[in-house]
């Protein structure tokens, strides 16, 4: 949508909008402010009653500990590799599968479609051990590929499901015209369907990336070697057996949160652009 709106909408009165926005921002940001505040406190300041809002002498010692005296930077890299890998893989498989489900009729389609979704319902705790055994048979324990595969199957079902509905919403006529012109199915998918489904693609990418980046339970059980551990595990490592170092935990939390927040701020234009592009398809 361009700067000049095509028409004036009636909207919420501006003051209400502003108040609403402030409340929204406060609710969403407050824990992060407290997290940041705690991360620059010294240990005694963290445990005073009543709590203090802002430390008298802010310290970056906790950050130093996180960035230079821990494995966090390494885990950060691991998280990036694993998240990107599994997102890309899930996206590719989901595009093809969704296109198949959205545009074709074949025997057993409803069954297969439910099969995909059912995978999402499995209790995590129940599939950890069998999944681990599968990975071991494939020789993928403690490898990037192992975790990428695991996260791919975690995110794939919903990705397929989301994209299928987006593809279905695109008028078939556009594709039929191209078929008459002799384009191949793959060609149509990439040249016509995909560009029209940007919001869907963006949504899938965001969903898959965030899910992978944040996942804790699988990583805890499958990544036992520091060369493949991810950030949430790094956070857990700060709590040693008898000593929860809250300042460092909060600093590590900030380190984990900041990049993904920045990513979103920088992607915001693209993201919203993608969303509004979807609006024009009618």
């Amino acid at each position: 949508m361009s700067e000049a709106p095509t028409l004036k909408r009636t909207g919420l009165p501006l003051p209400i909008t502003i108040i609403g926005a402030i409340v929204l921002v406060f609710i969403c940001l407050f824990p992060f402010m407290w997290m940041f505040g705690s991360s620059i406190k010294t240990l005694p300041e963290l445990y005073t009653v009543p709590p203090i809002w802002w430390p008298e002498t802010p310290t970056f010692g906790n950050y130093y500990k996180v960035l230079f005296e821990s494995n966090i930077p390494r885990y950060f890299l691991n998280s990036v590799i694993i998240s990107v890998g599994s997102t890309v893989l899930a996206l590719i498989l989901a595009i093809f599968a969704s296109y198949g489900f959205a545009r074709f009729n074949f025997r057993g389609k409803p069954v297969l479609q439910s099969f995909v979704l059912v995978g999402q319902l499995l209790p995590t705790a129940a599939i950890i051990v069998p999944l681990f055994i599968t990975l071991r048979v494939l020789g993928l324990v403690n490898t990037f590929w192992g975790l990428i595969l695991v996260y791919m199957i975690v995110t794939l079902p919903l990705s397929v499901w989301m994209l299928t509905s987006y593809f279905k919403a695109i008028p078939v006529e556009l594709e039929e015209a191209a078929i008459i012109d002799g384009a191949s199915r793959i060609g149509i998918l990439f040249r016509i369907t995909l560009p029209l489904s940007t919001p869907g693609i963006v949504a899938v990418v965001v969903y898959a990336f965030v899910t992978t980046w944040n996942e804790f339970v699988f990583a805890l059980c499958f990544a036992t070697d520091s060369s493949v551990k991810t950030l949430p595990i790094g956070l857990a490592e700060f709590s040693t057996e008898f000593n929860t170092d809250w300042g460092a935990v909060m600093a590590a939390s900030v380190v984990m949160t900041l990049p993904i927040a920045l990513l979103f701020f920088s992607m915001q234009r693209l993201f919203v652009g993608g969303l509004t592009a979807g609006a024009t398809k009618g």
Binding site: P5, F32, M250, M256, F264, Q268
Partner: peptide, 29 residues
């Protein structure tokens, strides 16, 4: 439509983006 809408949209996404374990520890705290 309001000024700063883009930023507010991004901020609104933050809770979802932050890892569950981070949210849990911070709120428990």
């Amino acid at each position: 439509n309001f000024i700063g809408r883009g930023i507010v949209r991004s901020i609104t996404l933050l809770p979802w983006v932050v890892p569950g374990i981070v949210a849990a520890t911070t709120w428990a705290w």
